[in-house]
Structure formats: C-alpha cells, structure tokens
Design a protein around this nucleic acid. Structure first.
Length: 328
DNA sequence: CGTATTTGACCCGCGC
DNA sequence: GCGCGGGTCAAATACG
C-alpha cells in the first residue's frame, strides 16, 4: 500500500469551503443561520462587514496553514518512498541479516519460558516464543528454528523534550508495564524493560534506553507484534513535559551506530524543511508494515487530538454541506 | 485497597 | 567451571 493513499482524504484540503476555525469553542452555527440572524437588525450591517473581513483574513491564514501542511505531507510521502526504496535495497543486499548486533546472545524467550506458565507462547498471531521448540533437541534444528521464529524486532529512536532527561517513557499509544530496569555495561543510562499491559495474551516487549551518543534520544527496541488492536483511545499526555506524543511529526530517520532506527524529532515545533528531511540519513530496518502502521497511528492520533483540526474539519464539512444546500 | 513501579536477587547463555 | 552481563522475577514500596 502506498503511503500516499493513506492520506487520500475524501475531501480536498485545498478546496476553499467557508472555513472558520474558532479559537475558543464557540458554537458552530451553520453559515446561513448566522447570516440570517444578522439581517434581523439592519443596523448591524457594519458589524457584518467587519466580520466578513475578519473571516476573509482567517480564511487566508487557514489557507496558508493548509498549504504548509500539504507540503509537509508531500515531504513525508517522498521521504517514505525513499525509505522504502532504501529498505528494499538494503534487504536485497543483505538477505539474511535482520537484527541488531548481539543477537548471538540468548534470546529473552528461551527454555526458561517454556517452563513458566505465563510465558508459554501459545499465542495466535504472534511469532514470539521460540520456546515452542520442545519437540527438538538437536542443536542444528534448534538453530534453524530460531532463525525462523525470532520475534520481530524493531528499533525506534525518539528525541525527548529538552527539559526531560530522566524519564524513559515513550508514548506510542500502547500501554506498557515496567518490569525491570538495568544499567548496562556500555551505557551509563539505565535500560528499562516493559511488557505490553495486555500480557500474557500479548507478549510484546520493549526495551527503552537513552542513546549513549545523544542523551536526548530515547531508543526503544520492540520485540514482537501486538496481537490486539491499537487502543482506540490513545492516552494523551499524562503530564507536563512527560509527554512524548508523536505528533506534529517532523519525522526523519537516522542511522545510529547501533543500527538503523527511526527518529521522531519531537523537539521541533516547526516542520523540518524539505532539505533537512532529504539530507537526513535514512535507513530503516523496522518492518515496513510497522513503519506504515506507525505513521498512520500517529498521524491519526495527532490529528484527532488537535482541537484546531477538529474545528477545521467540522467547518470544512459544514461548509461543503452549506455549499450543496445553497445550490439546491 | 488495588494497581503500577522500583529494585535487589536470581537465572542463564556465552566467552575464556 | 567460573565470571560477566543481559534479562526476568517478585517483594517492597508508592500512588491514586
């Protein structure tokens, strides 16, 4: 599926319905009603004119904003296509190589898991649980199996806000339960271990650690795939400065030394320029589907959280509606 | 009081 | 076999 198709809205963002974005929650009245009410008192004609001027100004502003957003979207699409190409290229060059270094260490879900009731991997829809290998004791076949039953591992880097250099919270929409923290050898900042709160039915885990190179970057490593839908109500920011909502995405990708990652730069309020995004080194090892899902989820959650967007959407819809009713 | 987080102890694979 | 280091467990603690 092409990314561009995902943003193929049924209404044209560039069309010019009588948009109006309210800053402070006024009742959204159909335009006709508003106009009628103004005609009740002829003495208020001046006021109507003023309002029209204001509306025109607002319309201009919204149009500019709309244009910017469209540009940003185009850039994102281009970037995505570029990434996709690079991923394919990378895959074709290294057909066997999938995961980050250190994979020869024992996997998290080994024999121990097969003995515990919680972690038994009889979960449908996931490829987690190399523990199912109870039938075979031969090393060769085991290795062979392990190769095919590795949980999907994807790595995501998120730049935290400047003021927040302590928490290891990555708001990705899912709910996680922390079950451990450890200081690792080659990184002074602790690594936090999370399990999906839908466990044991969903065995997705993630490790979160600050980048050794840039402390403002949080690297989250996901293991496995969720076997449940993305929580419909994406929890919003739980507190000031703690939020890492992946919104207003100046989304670039980067190649960390530890491996290919996706970096979502949340410190930038304004979209990165086309050039910036183009110049960003970009290679992604995360499964293509995950990336798509990621984009879609975060775009959706961001848009739905934005009151301005809601207002604009409502105005656009009512505007289109009015246009039609006027033509009747 | 129930749930989530913290944190020290423990387990286990790997390299020597 | 031993030590190291990453990963997990589970009791203690914090929090709403």
């Amino acid at each position: 599926m092409e990314f561009t198709s995902l943003v193929n809205n049924s209404f044209d963002l560039n069309s010019r319905p009588p948009l109006r974005i309210y800053k402070e929650d006024p009742p959204i009245l159909p335009k006709q009603e508003v106009v009628e009410s103004h005609f009740i008192e002829l003495g208020r004609n001046v006021h109507v004119k003023e309002e029209r001027g204001a509306l025109m100004e607002e319309l201009k502003r919204v149009s500019v904003e709309n244009k910017k957003l469209t540009e940003l979207l185009t850039v994102m699409c281009e970037n995505y296509t570029e990434l996709k190409n690079q991923l394919l290229e990378h895959k074709s060059k290294n057909p066997g190589v999938e995961n980050s270094p250190g994979s020869r260490k024992r996997k998290a879900h080994d024999n121990r898991n097969s003995s515990t009731s919680i972690d038994n991997g009889n979960i449908e829809g996931t490829n987690i649980g190399s523990s199912e290998s109870s039938s075979s004791d031969e090393d060769s076949s085991k290795k062979h199996k392990e190769d095919h039953m590795k949980p999907k591992i994807s790595q995501v880097s998120v730049r935290s806000e400047a003021s927040d250099h302590t928490s290891l919270i990555v708001k990705d929409g899912y709910q996680w339960r922390k079950y451990g923290q450890k200081v690792t050898r080659n990184n002074p900042s602790p690594r936090a271990y999370f399990k999906c709160s839908f466990a044991p039915s969903c065995q997705v885990k993630k490790k979160v650690q600050r980048s050794i190179e840039d402390q403002s970057i949080i690297v989250a490593t996901y293991e496995g795939e969720h076997n449940h839908p993305h929580p419909s109500k994406v929890e919003s920011t739980s507190g000031p400065n703690k939020s890492l909502t992946l919104g207003s995405v100046p989304c670039s990708t980067s190649l960390a030394s530890s491996g290919p990652t996706i970096t979502l730069d949340l410190t930038k309020q304004k979209p990165a320029s086309h050039e910036e995004i183009r110049n960003s080194r970009s290679k992604v090892d995360a499964p293509e589907q995950n990336i798509q899902q990621y984009f879609v989820e975060h775009m959706a959650s961001t848009l739905t959280k934005d009151p301005n967007f809601k207002a604009a959407l409502a105005a656009a819809i009512s505007g289109q509606f009015l246009q039609r009713t006027e033509n009747w």
